[in-house]
Nucleic acid binder design. Structure first.
Lengths: 240, 240
DNA sequence: ACCTTGAACCAATATAAGATTGGTTCAAAA
DNA sequence: TTTTGAACCAATCTTATATTGGTTCAAGGT
């Protein structure tokens, strides 16, 4: 029944790719080399390489987009150039203000619309935010976590809007500040909030997911800038 | 005390510009000719023409943006090219779904942050949606009405997001459908909702403005597609 | 027969260069 | 002193070219 030779080399290729990506040896920055180069590098045909990439993409480890490339992290926004100029005018509270309106809605829609395969991938990503050993790993996992939610909402315009926000957030100079403010305890709290949010989405509880995302972002906002004036009125303090 | 010659010619130029714009003789499509051409056409210096344009822009009659041009209607989104491709994949319910999350928040922020000058301009724009003689006029006034709200929120990222939505909405093919579905009675109802919304914003009542915008968009959504599945749960029917 | 390969082609995006447009400054002229 | 014309700056648009993932297909190997 098993087809040893071909399947084994295919599985070996997937394992090798996964290993090199995890080790960061093959990954330069965020984007992997073009498929044609990688096929040549590994000494396999492009079709075979693509099968391996297909599997990794199905597991949520890779993102691919025509004309842009293959990424370990979510790909950059479609325009990028125009958003780069915008990033200089935007303050941190501007970004959080928008996120607080967009992402809770995205979480609610994700809970309603995510298909089974996407839920499986999302469960792994959510777990990764808890297992993050250091702060940099958490940043990456958190980015993928939020991006997957936006994908699951299955609204191309909404996803584009989210990508604009994400692009500005990454390019803004104060990203450096944020990276320094996050401590180990804070990432732990945020990771637990991710779990609660992920549970709501996976169970299809839209309202709970919306609420969990709002609490999470409020916590992020408060951590980002102590006594931040982002959200005017709110009942309890979600940053327990 | 008065300086008759210069001031009078300046005022006359403003009046002439206003007249030609209103008559649609000078305006081709949405964009006015470049400043250099207009100055030559009117036989005045560019500096003088710019003074006149400054005044009209201050009244809310014109929009100017470097690198794009001078517009009677709000200027196009910054990228345009990328959003054109997106417009083909987006369904009407996708757009309304995003608008229902974005614009109520924008209305609330506008009520809190709009300065006095912007409020004065906005009051005129709101009145224009009521005075619209035909359906095409209403479309234009409605567009400016919503754009001004997004401007008053004073969040550059939020404004960019709104411009993306607006660009997609305009370029999508189903815009033609919407233009046909609006009847005189419907525009009357929507105009009254505009008044209620404008009143809340001008009074600085953020929550009332948010609520009014939400009701307005729900009404628009229902009119757009009868029995539209856009908003799941809602109390009363705002389309009275 | 079946599969793999390599190549070519398609679709979408990125990038770079040049043109267009509003914003600004400044010296010459009225 | 004011106005003008021009030059220059900054941001955007337009166009052409290159890059990249997605797809198809015939040649070759098993």
């Amino acid at each position: 029944m098993p087809e040893p030779v071909l399947k084994s080399t295919q599985a070996a290729l997937v394992a090798r790719l996964r290993r090199e990506i995890a080790a960061g040896e093959l990954q330069r920055g965020d984007r992997l080399p073009p498929e044609r180069e990688m096929a040549d590098y590994f000494g396999v045909s492009r079709a075979r390489l693509r099968q391996a990439l297909d599997q990794l993409e199905g597991e949520g480890a890779l993102f691919r987009r025509r004309g842009q490339g293959t990424f370990v992290q979510p790909p950059p926004a479609t325009d990028a150039a125009g958003l780069h100029r915008l990033a200089r005018r935007v303050r941190p509270q501007d970004v959080m203000e928008v996120r607080l309106e967009i992402e809770p809605a995205l979480a609610g829609l994700a809970a309603l619309r995510a298909n089974e395969k996407a839920r499986a991938v999302f469960a792994e990503v959510a777990q990764a935010t808890l297992d993050a050993p250091d702060q940099q790993s958490y940043e990456i996992a958190d980015d993928i976590f939020h991006y997957k939610i936006a994908e699951m909402a299955q609204n191309p315009l909404f996803l584009t809007v989210y990508e604009s926000i994400r692009s500005v957030r990454q390019q803004a100079m104060w990203t450096r500040t944020r990276a320094e403010t996050y401590s180990a305890e804070v990432t732990s709290v945020l990771g637990q909030q991710h779990q609660r949010l992920a549970k709501a989405i996976l169970n299809g509880e839209a309202e709970a997911a919306t609420e969990a995302m709002r609490d999470h972002l409020i916590c992020v906002s408060r951590t980002l800038m102590q006594a931040g004036p982002v959200v005017p009125q709110k009942t309890g303090d979600p940053c327990s």
